[in-house]
Design a protein around this nucleic acid. Sequence first.
DNA 1: TTGAAAATGATAATTATTATCAACAAACCC
DNA 2: GGGTTTGTTGATAATAATTATCATTTTCAA
Lengths: 159, 159
Amino acid sequence: MQPTRIHLSKEEPVTPQFLKKIIRAIGVKVTDQRMTILQEILNGAEHVTAQSVFENVKHKTPDIGFATVYRFLRTLTDHNVLSEIRVQGLPARYEWANKKHHDHISCTSCGKISEFENDEIEKLQIQIARNLNYKLTNHIMELYGLCSDCQRKQNILPN
Amino acid sequence: MQPTRIHLSKEEPVTPQFLKKIIRAIGVKVTDQRMTILQEILNGAEHVTAQSVFENVKHKTPDIGFATVYRFLRTLTDHNVLSEIRVQGLPARYEWANKKHHDHISCTSCGKISEFENDEIEKLQIQIARNLNYKLTNHIMELYGLCSDCQRKQNILPN
DNA sequence: TTGAAAATGATAATTATTATCAACAAACCC
DNA sequence: GGGTTTGTTGATAATAATTATCATTTTCAA
């Protein structure tokens, strides 16, 4: 299954037609389950887990199995509709892929994720690659730290 | 178990005394197993997994259980002797914590890996973290691209 | 040396994810 | 539309990494 690059804007209204367009674009069959899952992702929270998608979707479609959710999230990831964020041992989280490029910093204690973008780093990366005779195509940059809340907790309860 | 910050240089000779110093510094009892595990990490490869440490250590100490290895790696991580790197769904990898940081760029075609370090990016990362109220503890930065050889091949054999 | 506290190792439990497969459903053709 | 092919579903098992449990053993300070 080759990763197809798809350019879809999240700004378009979430109509059934729009959902079908996405599903067809990645070359798979349109099913009720996939429609529901996509809708949930488009309407729901920012960084969803397979579990949270599953639970929310289950209200509308109680017969759905979580293997279906996992599978479709993977498919969407393979086709760059979603991107997958994996932090520590926590379950994978997903976000809409083609928003402006950004990276993540996440808290190693509570798992909170914040986003940022930094053009200067992007430029340096390209430069580094060029110096080593690589043509840069992609990168992963994940920062880890303690968020303000967890820094505070650590001071209050030293144990 | 409070994270104790320990400053130990890997440059010191790996004597039994040195190993004991580390183990005592984190406030746990000195056991043969812990000595052997630490020695393995100090002498062994760069980015080890719990599994690889376990297997190597088992040659010298066949009676060791892998729970012991996991536990001790976690303890060392909690006390910042090691740092833990978790990428994708892969098993956690450990590296000596207070050495100079470096990153990797790898070729998506042939798998070649080159290392680099860049102070400017490191500084920017710390700055970014600070702006978002995180205390940066670690990061992963992996660049992906085509190495010079594979760029050339791609031109010769387009596909 | 000895006894309390901690560590070990075997194994079970847990967690996230992927694989399997029979029943079912979508899409293409006529 | 009806039939057929092929893809999808959902229940469940399998896998993989990690953590918990607990009886036994070991460390180490008094």
